[in-house]
Design a protein around this nucleic acid. Structure first.
Length: 292
DNA sequence: ATGTCCCAGTCTCTGGGA
């Protein structure tokens, strides 16, 4: 089974590139971020004709997350199971918890979650603390998930977990994505038991998933590894391959500023969802009690 | 090089966000 995550920087603007990439890569489950679509405006038909169902969560403009899968999507949960607050228009209104940044669904025996963490802009500003608050909310949501859940929490985390995940730690010092509080928030996800699937297969440095469009950053490999597939231990044990597809960051039509990340699972042998039966109900019950 | 791309609205350009 092939799982992928990709911040596409507009699903509509990227549709031709996405079709090319999906036909080339054939993921079974694809997590998408920054779709910038409304639920009604999401290109469901185009994905359906490629063989995918789509669970989409977005209000248009910015943000927006989705899960495309070759197998049915059930128990779809958006925004931490809470209704999204109405959009309040002005750019200075920065409330990530009112934005479409998380969608979860059960598919292919997995609990798949697509996240788009806030950017944070500048350390010490209101958007930065809002980013940390959003991570706090994500951790509480995660910690209400039973440990045996075959979880795949993937997306654009907007955090480079270590200095090995940035092109130049000194140049990045003092900026967002690398600050200690952001890295601590990321490590709290790992403390639940999640495994960084890419690092399980690739210890090397200079492997990034995002490069700024400007200044030829991609061609100079001035980037950061901020997109991740974090998987439960039972999923990690089955992972046999991980790669960042730099080809998708090149050429025309215009690429996203992020490259997709792919992980392959060996699903031969015992059923992948062993022990997972009934867990949707257990998750729902724990979320209910966590809200009280 | 603060050098690109995408979106919404002010709508064939501009400002904001990443």
């Amino acid at each position: 089974m092939r799982i992928a995550t990709w911040n596409v920087n507009s699903l509509k603007a990227r549709l031709e590139k996405l079709v090319w990439w999906v036909e080339r890569t054939n993921p079974d489950v694809l997590l998408l971020q920054e779709t910038k679509c409304t639920d009604a405006g999401a290109p469901r038909e185009a994905l359906f004709s490629l063989g995918y169902e789509l669970a989409h969560h977005g209000s248009g403009g910015r943000n927006g997350v989705a899960i495309a899968s070759r197998t049915p999507l059930t128990a779809i949960e958006t925004n931490f199971g809470e209704p999204l607050a109405p959009r309040t228009a002005t750019a200075s209104d920065d409330d990530p918890l009112a934005e479409a940044r998380i969608v979860a669904a059960t598919t292919a025996g997995l609990r798949a979650v697509s996240v788009y963490a806030p950017n944070g802009r500048v350390v010490g500003t209101a958007p930065y603390f809002a980013k940390l608050d959003w991570y706090e909310r994500l951790s509480r949501w995660l910690e209400a998930t039973p440990k045996e859940t075959p979880l795949v929490l993937g997306g654009d985390f907007n955090v480079a977990p270590t200095d090995d995940d940035v092109w130049d730690a000194r140049a990045c010092h003092g900026g967002t994505h690398v600050s200690e509080p952001e890295r601590a928030a990321f490590r709290r996800l790992l403390a639940w038991g999640l495994v960084d699937a890419y690092r399980r297969h690739h210890p090397e440095r200079e492997r990034y998933t995002w490069w700024d469009y400007r200044a030829g950053d991609f061609h100079r490999n001035v980037g950061m590894r901020i997109d991740h597939l974090l998987v439960a231990p039972a999923v990690a044990e089955r992972s046999v391959f991980a790669e960042i597809d730099r080809e998708a960051r090149k050429g025309r039509p215009t690429p996203s500023d992020h490259a997709p990340l792919v992980v392959d699972l060996d699903t031969s042998g015992r059923p992948f969802d062993a022990g997972w039966s009934g867990a949707e109900e257990r998750i729902a019950a724990r979320r209910q009690s966590a809200r009280k």
